[in-house]
Nucleic acid binder design. Structure first.
Lengths: 242, 242
DNA sequence: CGTCATATTGACTTTAGTCAATAGAAGTGG
DNA sequence: CCACTTCTATTGACTAAAGTCAATATGACG
């Protein structure tokens, strides 16, 4: 049942038979959500961490003035709130951006892994570090990229992550975010997102219709965005530098 | 020598005698830097992680167009690039914002801790999670707070962190950042930082002269910033929620 | 004492936000 | 299956926040 974690952590290190067995035997309670539902509430102190099985979800905060900042977007296979294992209560909420299925893994079982498999501790730290690297990239985008480039950049990232998650067909995938949500990802207003998308469309860099994003020429979009994919650590490391 | 880590991780859990001894016996190579020097270069794959002993430092990226985004600011006692233990090469550089002393801990010794002390693995994960929580708060500030509030917010955060690090005297501390650096923290231009500081000064919320920041009334600044300190997890947890 | 870094201010530009009207699409319940 | 509601996207007109450029001051430092 836990293929996603096994597959993902294999990108970091070669898992032993025991380690694979340990990951696969993690128990999970499954639950489904509709678009817009809150999966984990801000301020709660969950005793489980959550793997997204299918659909889409994002982590977000609401400020006192009502504005929202989306902090991360998750594709199937992502451990969405591994950090809640060590840092409670949660400083943000998690919501479903589409009809989604989720698996909940009890924290005590994660603690069990850490006790028995030091290399899996490192894999979990790697997972957290990857999430942090993506957050830094987003932060850079909000702070220093134009709306146009930032949105293009996000689409490049999402295309690659969705590819790894097996969610891309041809050169398109389902984008379960509306323009208000894209705005809250990029620190922009929905109206400005609409205008920026218009430009991207006019230049033929994207086709976005009926919730489906098509990228006719990824290289061109990457060029327009100034995208460098290294931070995603997508490929299996050829060999550990020593 | 490793008091900073012992003290910090005691905020997370009650360390055993052995665990304290293990942290204290971590070897370290010390080195000093001048303001502006690069401590770790972007793209390098260090085999050590770095604890800031004294001074100040920040992590940053430079974009192709020359603009800079500062991703984190560190006070003495911070483990600045714990993530480089699991995620290499580094996606950003680390630079000194003041004359600073740094201790380098070999990654293999960190691996040793993880192998022998599962609870210390969790403490390290907690440290990484805290760093990520601060990054999320900064991201929210860049995306959704006005320049004025964001700068005020940053000063509140820094005041509390500097207090924990024992760097505050009375109600003031040394601010080793110029306006260009403050701008690159907040995603603003130096000129706009200058104007925002002017407003904060005019309202009597801050006194900033000769590299020293005085906060006459922290409550007022917190109010102006809409600051909520929870994400810093500064206090020792009263008791683990169960 | 002179140089370099830093801060301040004014004038002007640009980017993005706000408000509002409209249109279209997608659910929902009878 | 249709009518109704609600959500979502688009566009125009206007506003506001922040950026840029440039001149000048201030200050630290060797």
């Amino acid at each position: 049942m836990y293929d996603p974690l096994v597959e993902k952590y294999s990108r970091y290190l070669a898992l032993s038979r025991d380690e694979i067995a340990a990951l696969e035997s993690l128990p999970a309670r499954y639950r489904d959500y509709r678009r817009g539902e809150v999966i984990v509430a801000e301020g709660s102190a969950p005793r489980e961490s959550i793997v997204l099985i299918s659909g889409g979800a994002y982590r977000f905060r609401i400020l006192p003035d009502g504005s929202r900042q989306i902090l991360a977007f998750h594709v199937p296979g992502d451990f969405m709130d591994l950090h809640s294992f060590v840092l409670r209560p949660l400083d943000h909420a998690i919501g479903a951006s589409a009809k989604s299925r989720v698996a909940r893994v009890p924290h005590e079982r994660i603690a069990g892994l850490i006790g028995r498999f030091p290399r899996l501790s490192c894999a979990l730290m790697w997972d957290m570090a990857l999430d942090a690297a993506t957050t830094r990239e987003w932060m850079t985008g909000i702070g220093r990229r134009s709306a146009y480039r930032h949105i293009a950049h996000f689409f490049c990232e999402l295309y690659l992550r969705m590819t790894m998650a097996g969610q891309v067909e041809g050169n398109s995938f389902e984008l379960t975010l509306n323009q208000a949500e894209l705005g809250d990802i990029c620190g922009l207003s929905a109206v400005h997102v609409s205008r920026s998308l218009k430009t991207l469309r006019a230049e033929g860099l994207i086709v976005l219709e009926k919730g489906r994003l098509t990228i006719p020429d990824l290289e061109e979009l990457i060029e327009a965005a100034g995208f460098e994919p290294d931070y995603l650590h997508l490929v299996t490391r050829p060999a550990r530098r020593r």
